[in-house]
Amino acid sequence: MTELLHFSRQLTTEAQAQASGVGTWKQHYEQLSNGRFEGLSEDLHLDFVQVFHEHANQTVLQHGLGRPGALCLAVIDVTAPGSWYCGHDLDGRRLIALSPQREFELLAGAGMDLMAVCVDTEPLADLAATLFGPDFALRMPVPAPVERSGFDETAFTRLLGAALSLARDNLAQLEQPAARHMLSLSLADAVLQCMGSDAFEARLPASSAARRHIVAKAREYMQAHADEPISVPDLCAATGVSRRSLQYAFEDVLHLSPVTYLRVMRLNRVRCEMQACRDDTIGDIAARWGFWHLSRFAIDYTRLFGELPSATRARWFAKS
C-alpha cells in the first residue's frame, strides 16, 4: 500500500489503542502487567516507506502481521527482564526483522521503546538492482532478531528519529516531492545495508521451540473457548502435555501461570468490549467473558489496569 504523506501522533491509555495506532498493520496487544497503561505511538507514511515509533510503560504481549508487501526492520530497546521476540530472548537494544507473510509475537517488558521502518518490496527490489546489480536477490526475512556484522544500530535509529522529528515539527517540508523522495531513498538504503545471506537468525533451541508450541496451542484453545469455564485439565488435554509441563511452559514463555494468563486475556477482552458495546452494562460484558463474581472481577480489573471498570467507561463516555 502506498500513501504519499501522512503523520499521526497519539498518547494512548489502552494497549489495543496502541496497536491500532500503527496504520496498515493487523495486530493485537494484551496488557500483562498491573497498572495504568501509558503509551506513545507515532506513525509516518511517505511514498513507499512507513516509519513508526512506540513506547509503553506496561508489559504487553503483541502479535499479528506487519505492513502487507513490505520488508520491515525495527530497533527495540528493552530493560525489563523476560522480554522476547518470536522465542528469542531480548536484552537491551536489538535489531529485529518482521515478515509480511508470517505472524510475529513480541513480549515487550515495561518501558519498551521501538522504532521501525517498512519499505514496500517492489521499489526496494528496484533500488537494490540499481545499487548492487540485477543479480541481487531481495530476501524476505523471517520474524527474528538480526545479527549483521558492522551494522550501526545507533546511526539507523538516529535516521528514523530524524524522519519522525521532521514530521512532528515541520510536516510541510515533506509536502515537497523532492524532499519526500530523498528521505524515502535514504530510509530504503538503510534497510538494504542490513540485507545479507547471514543476517537473519531464525533457529530456536529445541526446548524453547517446544515450550512456545505448547503455549501457542493453549492460547489458541483459550481464545476459542474464552467464554467457557476452562480448567487446567482442559488445557492439558488440548495441548497433550502434563500439568507440570504446561505450567513450566507458560512461566518460561509468558512469565505467568496458565490460570493467570487466562484471567488477564479475559480482562483485556472485557476492556475492549466496554468501549465497543456501550449499550451493555459492565456486568453483562463481564459475564459474557466468564466473570460471574462481579466484586472479584472489579478487584482483578483494577489491579491490572489501575482503575475501576466504571472509571474506564466514564472516561470513554466523556470523550465521545
Rank of each mutant, 00 (worst) to 15 (best):
P205T: 12
P205D: 13
A206R: 15
A206C: 08
A206S: 15
A206Y: 13
S207H: 14
S207T: 15
S207N: 14
S207F: 12
S207Y: 10
S208I: 15
S208E: 14
S208Q: 15
A209R: 15
A209T: 05
A209G: 11
R211M: 14
R211L: 14
R212L: 14
R212N: 14
H213M: 12
H213F: 08
H213E: 15
I214Y: 02
I214F: 02
I214D: 01
I214G: 03
V215F: 07
V215R: 06
V215K: 06
V215E: 08
A216K: 15
K217Y: 02
K217L: 12
K217M: 11
A218V: 05
R219H: 08
R219Y: 05
R219G: 06
R219L: 12
E220V: 06
E220S: 14
E220R: 13
E220D: 12
Y221N: 06
Y221A: 07
Y221V: 05
Y221W: 11
Y221M: 06
M222F: 05
M222P: 05
M222L: 14
M222Y: 04
M222D: 03
Q223W: 10
Q223L: 13
Q223E: 14
Q223D: 13
A224N: 08
A224Q: 11
A224T: 07
A224W: 03
A226D: 09
A226E: 09
D227K: 12
E228Y: 10
E228M: 13
P229Q: 10
P229I: 07
I230C: 06
I230M: 07
I230D: 05
I230A: 03
S231L: 07
S231R: 08
V232S: 00
V232F: 00
P233S: 00
P233I: 00
D234L: 02
D234P: 02
D234K: 01
D234Y: 01
L235A: 01
L235V: 03
L235G: 01
L235Y: 03
L235N: 01
C236G: 02
C236F: 03
C236S: 06
C236E: 09
A237S: 08
A238S: 03
A238P: 00
T239H: 01
T239E: 02
G240D: 00
G240C: 00
G240K: 00
V241T: 08
S242N: 02
S242G: 10
S242T: 13
R243S: 12
R243L: 08
R243E: 12
R244D: 10
R244P: 05
R244G: 08
S245G: 04
S245P: 02
L246T: 04
Q247V: 04
Q247Y: 12
Q247G: 10
Y248Q: 13
Y248K: 11
Y248I: 14
A249M: 10
A249S: 15
A249C: 11
F250R: 05
F250H: 11
F250K: 06
E251H: 06
E251T: 06
E251I: 01
E251C: 03
D252I: 04
D252L: 08
V253K: 02
V253M: 07
V253R: 02
V253E: 09
